[in-house]
Amino acid sequence: MNKLIKVTGLIIAVFLLSHCSQRQDSSKAEVKDLSEQPRITGQNEAPDSVRPLLQKADLALREGLTTKAINHLQRALQISPATAEIQQRLAEAYLADGRYRQAAYWADIVVSTGPKSEPLCRQSRQTLALAAEAMGDLPTQAQALAALNDCLQP
C-alpha cells in the first residue's frame, strides 16, 4: 500500500510538471477514481436532479463524515459530470478529508474551465491555494492566490 502511494505520488508529480503542455492526456495519471471524469465544465450550477445528493453531502460534512460526503458528491458528478458547482464541492470535500492531491485536481478543473465570476471563481482559487500549500507546492499556491484578482464581480 505504501509503495502504491509513492507510485501514485510520482505519477501525480509528473502530471503537475506536464500540466500545461499535455493537459488532455494527463487526466489518466490521476488517482484511479478520477481517471474517467470530464475536464470541461459545461454549466456552473448543479441541476435540481442532484440537489438531494448535495444536501446529503453538506450534512455529512457538517457531521465530519468526509468520506460519506465525497461518495455523495461523486454520485452527483456521475449524474451531472460537467458541473462546476459539483466539481468545486468535491474539491472542498477532498480538502476537508486531507486528500490534497484530489482537492487540487478538482479545484484546478474549476479554475481552468469554470466561471470567471464570483463566488465559484474565488472559491476554486482559494481551494487550490490551500491544497497546494498543504502539499508544499508554493508556486501553485502563489499562482492561485494571484488569480483571485481575475475573478469578476457578478
Rank of each mutant, 00 (worst) to 15 (best):
L10R: 10
I11N: 10
I11G: 04
I12F: 09
V14D: 08
F15G: 09
L17V: 10
S18F: 12
C20S: 13
S21W: 10
S21I: 08
S21H: 08
S21T: 06
Q22Y: 12
Q22W: 10
Q22H: 12
Q22D: 14
R23H: 11
R23I: 03
R23F: 13
Q24M: 05
Q24T: 08
S26W: 07
K28N: 05
A29I: 02
A29C: 03
A29D: 05
V31W: 11
V31M: 10
V31L: 14
K32A: 13
D33M: 05
S35N: 11
E36K: 09
E36N: 11
Q37L: 12
P38Y: 03
R39N: 06
R39C: 05
R39Y: 04
I40W: 02
T41E: 04
T41F: 00
G42C: 04
Q43T: 11
Q43C: 03
N44I: 09
N44A: 14
N44E: 15
E45W: 10
E45Q: 14
A46F: 12
D48H: 10
D48A: 14
D48M: 06
D48N: 12
D48V: 12
S49K: 09
V50L: 07
V50W: 07
V50S: 06
P52A: 05
P52N: 07
L53M: 11
L53V: 01
L53I: 02
Q55L: 06
Q55F: 02
A57F: 02
L59S: 15
L59Q: 15
L59K: 15
A60D: 15
A60L: 02
L61E: 01
R62E: 12
E63G: 02
G64W: 05
G64E: 08
L65R: 13
T66V: 02
T67S: 14
A69W: 03
A69Q: 02
A69T: 03
N71G: 02
H72S: 08
H72K: 07
Q74D: 07
A76L: 08
A76N: 08
A76H: 08
Q78L: 07
Q78R: 13
Q78T: 10
I79R: 06
I79F: 05
I79E: 12
S80M: 01
S80W: 01
P81G: 07
P81C: 03
A82Q: 13
A82T: 11
A82W: 00
T83D: 08
A84E: 15
A84S: 15
A84H: 02
E85K: 07
I86V: 14
Q87A: 12
Q88A: 09
Q88P: 00
R89K: 11
R89T: 00
L90Q: 04
L90H: 03
A91K: 04
A91S: 14
E92Y: 01
